[in-house]
C-alpha cells in the first residue's frame, strides 16, 4: 500500500496566498470586539476592572488620611463609619486608603505576573509540544527540575544575591509561575497538532509560526485563559509570602495579600472589616477577570463565529 516517496511532490511554500483563503485579519479583532460587546457579563467584568483600576488610582486621595499615618490612641480598630469608611486597623490606620493603596500593588503584581507567565509559558510550551521528540523531552525535564527545587530556598538566595527590589519580586514571582502554563500549552499542542486541520494546513505548506499563531495557540486559548485567571490570585498571595521573607513590599506599605495575612485574627475577634475589604475586592477582581476571560474565550473561539 506504500506509495513511493518520489510520487510525492513538495507543495511550494505559499503557492496559494493563504491570506486570501481567510477573512482579512483586520476585521478579526473587530469581530472579536463586536462579539465581546454583546456578552453582557464580559462587559460587566471589563467595566469592573476599569472601575477597580480607577479606584486604585484615586482611592487613596478620597480620604484625608495616608496609608501609613497612625493613631495609636482612640483611633484604633474603629468599625466602618462616616469618618473612616472601611474602619481603621490595629495601629489606627485608615483601611479604605490602605485597601486602595494595596490595590495598586496587588493589581500590578497580578497583571504583570500573569502577562509574564503567559508569554514565557505559551512560547515555551508551544515549542516543546510542537517540536516534540527529544526537544520536548529536554524542555520538559528542565520544567521538572525547576519545579522540584525548593521555592523557599530559591527565593532566599535570590534575595541575598539581588537584594530586595521590584525586579527581584518579579523574578521571584515568575520563577516558577510559568511552569504550569508551559505544561498546559504543551499538552494541548501535542493533541492539536495531530488533528486533521493542522495536518491539512501543514500539507499546504504553512510555516511553523503560522501553524502556531493561527491554529495551535488560538485553539488552546480556553485553558490558557482559565490558567491566567488563576495566576492573578496566585501572584497576589505569593507576594504576601515574599513579604514574609522580606522581599515583598516593605511595611508600612500594604498589599491585599499582606492585609489579608495580617488580618487573620478577625476570624476570632470582631474586627471583620480588616479582612473583609481586601478579601472582598480581591474576589471582585477575580470575578471580573473570570467574567471577562470567559467572554474573551467565547469571542475568540473561531467556531462561535456566526
Amino acid at each position: 500500500m506504500a506509495i513511493p516517496a518520489e510520487k510525492f511532490e513538495r507543495a511550494p511554500k505559499r503557492a496559494v496566498d493563504i491570506e486570501t483563503l481567510r477573512r482579512p485579519s483586520l476585521t478579526y479583532w473587530q469581530d472579536v470586539w463586536n462579539r465581546l460587546k454583546q456578552n453582557k457579563l464580559a462587559m460587566a467584568g471589563l467595566f469592573m476592572i476599569i472601575l477597580l483600576v480607577a479606584m486604585a488610582i484615586a482611592g487613596p486621595f478620597m480620604q484625608p488620611y495616608t496609608y501609613y499615618e497612625q493613631d495609636l490612641g482612640d483611633g484604633k480598630n474603629i468599625s466602618p463609619s462616616g469618618g473612616h469608611w472601611f474602619g481603621t486597623d490595629e495601629l489606627g490606620r485608615d483601611v479604605f486608603v490602605r485597601t486602595w493603596y494595596g490595590a495598586r500593588i496587588s493589581l500590578t503584581i497580578g497583571v504583570v505576573a500573569a502577562l509574564i507567565d503567559l508569554i514565557i509559558g505559551v512560547i515555551y510550551g508551544g515549542i516543546s509540544g510542537y517540536r516534540g521528540g527529544r526537544t520536548d523531552e529536554v524542555m520538559m525535564r528542565i520544567v521538572d527540575v525547576l519545579w522540584g527545587l525548593p521555592y523557599l530556598l530559591v527565593v532566599i538566595l535570590l534575595l541575598v544575591v539581588m537584594g530586595p527590589g521590584v525586579l527581584t519580586i518579579i523574578i521571584a514571582l515568575t520563577a516558577t509561575g510559568w511552569l504550569n502554563m508551559a505544561r498546559l500549552v504543551r499538552g494541548q499542542v501535542l493533541q492539536l497538532k495531530e488533528q486533521e486541520y493542522v495536518m491539512a494546513s501543514q500539507t499546504l505548506g504553512a510555516s511553523t509560526d503560522w501553524l502556531m499563531s493561527k491554529h495551535l495557540i488560538p485553539n488552546t486559548l480556553g485553558p490558557i485563559i482559565v490558567m491566567l485567571t488563576f495566576t492573578v490570585p496566585n501572584a497576589i498571595f505569593a507576594e504576601a509570602f515574599l513579604s514574609f521573607l522580606g522581599l515583598g513590599v516593605q511595611a508600612p506599605v500594604a498589599s491585599w495579600g499582606t492585609m489579608i495575612n495580617d488580618a487573620l485574627v478577625v476570624v476570632l475577634s470582631d474586627e471583620w472589616w480588616r479582612l473583609f475589604f481586601p478579601a472582598f475586592f480581591l474576589s471582585l477582581t477575580l470575578l471580573a477577570f473570570n467574567a471577562l476571560g470567559d467572554g474573551l474565550r467565547d469571542a475568540l473561539d473561531p467556531k462561535m463565529r456566526k
Binding site: G133, D144, Q191
Partner: peptide, 30 residues
Amino acid sequence: FSAFLILMNFLVDLAYGYIDPRIKLGKKEA
C-alpha cells in the same frame, strides 16, 4: 517530592497516549 513529581508528569504523558492515541511521545521530532 521531586521523585513524586517527575513520576506524576511521566504518568500524565502516558495518559495522553491512552486518552488520545494520536498523541505519540518519544518518537522522532515532527
